[in-house]
Amino acid sequence: MRKHFAFSLAALMLAALPLTATAQDKKTLTVYTYESFVAEWGPGPKVKETFEKTCDCTLNFVAVADGVALLTRLKLEGASSDADLALGLDTNLIQEAKDTGLFAPHGIDTSAAKVPGGFKDDVFVPFDYGHFAVIYDSETIKTPPSSMKDLVEGDPSQKIVIQDPRTSTPGLGLLLWVKSVYGDKAPEAWAKLKDRILTVTPGWSEAYGLFTKGEAPMVLSYVTSPAYHMMEEKTERYKAAKFSEGHYIQIEVSGMLKATKNKALAEQFLAFTLSPQFQTIIPTTNWMMPAAATADPLPEAFGKLVEPSKTFLMSPEDVAKNRQAWIREWLTAMSMN
């Protein structure tokens, strides 16, 4: 028994070995990000390749589950973090991130950034964005909701799967969207919408999994989601519903940490994220809209996507201030029978 134990320990050490074997001579830029960014099909590999051509450095991604986990990890590590940069926080996390005091102003020219709603910040640089949208299965739903009001008041037998604002970013996005549309009347709206909600999942993956398995004909996701199905699965079955009131936006940002020992390199990377080379990679790997001009025109599928007529975005301060209260409000409305 002991022998086997030693063997499996050795196997573990072997598995951990590549972690320590990084190049020593070149400068290393460490970027904390979320998992799907560095997946083999994600933007990570191409971004690394492209950036390393210009910087004479090693770009090292460290990935955690999602944007929220990313912030948690930074908080746990504090000032001693190895991270030079964090890539993949979103607008709703900005205030919390700033409050940690771990981030430094970027000091770069962000005039290239073109994001609906005109997001500007001296600490965080946007690198992509996506509007939240209700995605529906066009084989089941012939007349999709054309507004938030439609969704709230529509046929309760046509179900939607949403995410929990307590544990997921899209869930919080929908909460803010409803709040933006309904204001003080949001609880009443939720109480009505409740009957249409099949279930509330802890994260995006579970919800989208239920949707593609056909359990519900609608799911909360992004305007860009159909592009994936069009390009990778060659189907136009899944479409986004355009809401006349407008759509809430999620902007993904990156920022530089105060404690970085590679300030110049980090700034160079931030500037790179707004460059056409970086932006061209984003749409078909991260399935989000580019936050600045791309080198090539967007793929055809992106032309078929819904273009929101209006963009909702609350200021990070407002979100940070009211999040708890609004979640309580949501809980009360949703738990009432």
Binding site: L198, T199, V200, T201, L210, M334
Partner: peptide
């Protein structure tokens, strides 16, 4: 959460 149908 997945099967519960709501935050209740």
């Amino acid at each position: 959460l997945v099967l519960g149908g709501g935050p209740a």
